[in-house]
Each structure stands twice: as structure tokens, then as C-alpha cells.
Nucleic acid binder design. Structure first.
Lengths: 233, 233
DNA sequence: AGGCTTAATAAGTAGTACCTTTATCGAGGC
DNA sequence: GCCTCGATAAAGGTACTACTTATTAAGCCT
């Protein structure tokens, strides 16, 4: 995404602050950061500006660059989410993302049933069938399944026609990828889980808002439960 | 918030792009922007970097700064939401925010019933009582009511213990403020709407997740309906 | 002790020079 | 005539320097 020295410094700083190393309240100096990262003032300043927009730091004259308390951070910022998923708080971040999905996806499904274009409906069906097939073959842990899963849920959010919901596609994709790569998905899915994508896609295709919402909700609760059991005893 | 020349340029550019003036696909030149805003390279570059992080522009060598299509924008970014609410798309933005609230707040209420601290529960009750009192006095359009409303819904989201939900406090506050300032709230609230804050706060205080979720949902649907009717015929 | 002045500090802004990438075009060969 | 390769130039990326301004903190005077 953000390439070049600027991006490197940004990611480095963001990752570390998200991990809690320079703790909130810590005051950084521009000059010091220049040395630490052996980069020019320009590069550091640009990185700081982005972090400032996320609310992670605040720059004040005569004082320096203060790391802000977590409550001030924009937790929904995609960059921050990425950094969090690479840090020690990744499990909590995954949990938070899952809760968000449970809240948001059923609404997206409902809206999609009303607003999705014909091509979107068709593509959702296609992806759901693919997921169903792969699942029945026991390939629920493969890269291919993950890709289709990401595509399905992303398209669902996009089809809602609500930009705010659509913007969650990226974070949610990272949630899915994060879980699979940590091997947190159950090897054997609970019975009934498999066709859920399919019935959901059909409900959307037929324009049934309530059905779509219900199936999405049921699906997510199922996934949530599987995860909870996996992390439990 | 972001003060100084940097902030000015950032807001100016962000507002205009959000309003659709330099349309997606348009290519801006750094040097040109320097002249247009009579600011130094430094200032412009920092603004561009922030816009780049939001996904509104992409800078490429030998090409320039391309305004990205809307789908690439991070619609959840607080700055962008603010710009959108000041532009010609404010009604659509308010609608999108309302849909988001309907999805998110019931979940937040449910989680708050489980996780809120004693002080948070008490404060929610206090705010709900205040809202109830003001409403019964017909002061639903005052600054005071707006402030309490914002505080209530913000605290609700914060009490969920989920940073991603808490991060929506700011956008939702702007949604509430936006509506009241445009006079889009009904003068006479529908019957039953008034005590809804109160029963919701009580459900949270008593730790009843399902009740909290249901009341939040009912409340939002009520508000939504009022709005829809207000905007309709 | 309290308020006012002053000095020191660190970020903010400006401007310049130079580096690096890359779209574009033209020359040469197949 | 088309394709490949290389030169060229255009634009952002990086570095460095000088100067400005806000803000804190110390010091001084009353």
C-alpha cells in the first residue's frame, strides 16, 4: 500500500505504538525520530501527520509529539486495524471485529436484498455455491476457500449500497484472513453451517430482507460460537 | 482539530474532493496545488499524505496525484464524514449514518448491559432521565437536549467495551448534530418515544442484554421512521 | 508571593537542490 | 509494419537548511 521510506516509517511507528511500546503519554521529539529511523525531517513529519489524523499522536509546539491515550484513536482506521492484528493484542482485535460483524453484516444483508444489482446477486450466488462445494470437500482451510469467503462477505457489504458498511470490507477481510492464518477456524464445521452461505445468497437474490437478515445473523452466531469453543477449554 | 496551514489545506482539499469538485480520475500536480493554496511544498505534501491514507488520492511518480474513485475511500474516516456532512451529499450521508446506527447501537447496548462499569450505568441512567425530562417539557430541539443525546449515545457505545464500536461515537455525534441543526427532527415526538431512553438505560443498568438490545432497536426504528416521514410528503 | 518579562525550545513553514521512478517517444532491428 | 530497447523528460520522493512562531518555564521585579 504505502510504499517508500515514508510508508516504512509510518508502519514502523504505527505498529509499535499500537503494540504499546511508546506508551500513551510518552513524548517523542521530531529530531530524535529523525535519528532513530535515519530518515529526513520530511519523511518523519509526513508519517506523524498521518498518525495525528488517526488520533494516535498529537504534535504541539515547544512540547513535542505526545502519544495519545487509546480512547482517542480511531479504532476503525484500516491501517490501525492492520497494525493491531500484528501486535500482541491481535486476539482482542479479532474478538472486537467479530462483534462488529455480528452487528453489521445482518443489516448489510437486509439492505442488499433490497438494493443489490442483478450482477451482484448472481455473483453472491456463485460465490456461495463455491463455498458450499469447497466446504463439502473438506477444503474449508485452504487459500481458495479463504479467498471466496472474503469475496463473498466483501461483496455482501458492498451490495448494501451503504458506503459506511462497504468500508468495513477491508477490516473484515483481514479478520477472516487473520483467523485462518492463525488456524483458529475449526477443522470440522458444525452441521448446518455449510449451506448457510447458500441460503443467505438465495434470500438476497430473491429480495427477502427479513430472511437475508435472519440467515446472516444465524451464520455469524454459528461462526462466533465455533470460535468461542475453539478458544475455550 | 487540525490547526495551522496544514490543517487548512487538508480541510479545503478534503471538503472539495468529497463534494466531488475535482472528480475521481482528475490528476492534480503538486506544483499546481502549491500555487493554488499559496503554501509551501511541505504543507501540501503533508495534506496529500493524509488524503492518501484515507484513500481519496494516490500519488504516483511521473503522473501526479490522482483523485481516486469513491469506492476506494475509507468512508468511516471521521474527517471524511465531516467533510461529507458539509457538502451536497449531506442527506445521503445522514441516511447512511442512520443505517449504521440501527445496525450498531443495539449490539453496543447488548454488550454494555454485560460490560459497562457501575459509573457508566449510573451516568447512562442520569442522562436518560435528563432526556426524558427535557422531552416532556417540549425542549427536544434545544442545544441542551442535543448535548445530552450525544452524551448518551456516545457513552452507550463506549460502554460496550469494544473499541470499534466506541470509535463510532464521533461520527454518530455528528449525525445527531447534523440532523438537529438542519431542523430534521420532528417537533412533536411520536408517543412512547420519550421514555425509550429511560427503559433502555434501565435494561443496561440491570444487565439484561436482550432487553437492552430490543429497546435500543425499537428506539432507533422509531427515530428512523420519524425521519423518513419528515423527509417524505 | 504574584504577576510580568524574557529566553529557550521544539514544532511549523519555506525554499532549494538533488534523487528515483516511470510514462513516453523515437531509433533501430526483425 | 511491428516490436524491442534505450534515451529523455516529467513528476513526485528525499534531504537539508534557514527562518518563523507558539508555548513553556525560568527569572526578575515589584
Amino acid at each position: 500500500m504505502a510504499t517508500g521510506m515514508h510508508g516504512d516509517v509510518l508502519n514502523e511507528l504505527g505498529r509499535r505504538i499500537a503494540a504499546g511500546d511508546p506508551r500513551p503519554g510518552t513524548i517523542l521529539k521530531l529530531a530524535q525520530l529523525e535519528q532513530d529511523h535515519s530518515a529526513s525531517r520530511t519523511v518523519i513529519r509526513e508519517a506523524i501527520r498521518v498518525l495525528e489524523n488517526i488520533g494516535m499522536v498529537a504534535a504541539r509546539r515547544r512540547v513535542g509529539i505526545t502519544v495519545q491515550p487509546r480512547e482517542h484513536w480511531d479504532a476503525l482506521d484500516p491501517s490501525l486495524i492492520q497494525w493491531s492484528l500484528r501486535g500482541p493484542l491481535r486476539h482482542q482485535q479479532l474478538e472486537s471485529l467479530m462483534e462488529l460483524r455480528v452487528a453489521v453484516e445482518p443489516m448489510a444483508a437486509s439492505l442488499a436484498a433490497e438494493r443489490a444489482t442483478v450482477t451482484q446477486r448472481a455473483e453472491l450466488l456463485r460465490l456461495a455455491e463455491q463455498l458450499n462445494d469447497l466446504g463439502q470437500q473438506g477444503l474449508g482451510q485452504t487459500e481458495e476457500y479463504l479467498g471466496a469467503d472474503i469475496a463473498f462477505h466483501g461483496l455482501l457489504l458492498t451490495s448494501s449500497g451503504n458506503p459506511l458498511l462497504a468500508a468495513m470490507a477491508t477490516p473484515i477481510a483481514e479478520e477472516l484472513a487473520g483467523r485462518t492464518k492463525l488456524g483458529l477456524h475449526p477443522t470440522v464445521p458444525a452441521p448446518g453451517t455449510l449451506e448457510q452461505h447458500l441460503v443467505l445468497a438465495r434470500a438476497i437474490a430473491s429480495g427477502d430482507r427479513k430472511e437475508a437478515e435472519a440467515h446472516s445473523h444465524a451464520h455469524l452466531l454459528g461462526v462466533w460460537r465455533e470460535i468461542a469453543e475453539g478458544n475455550g477449554p
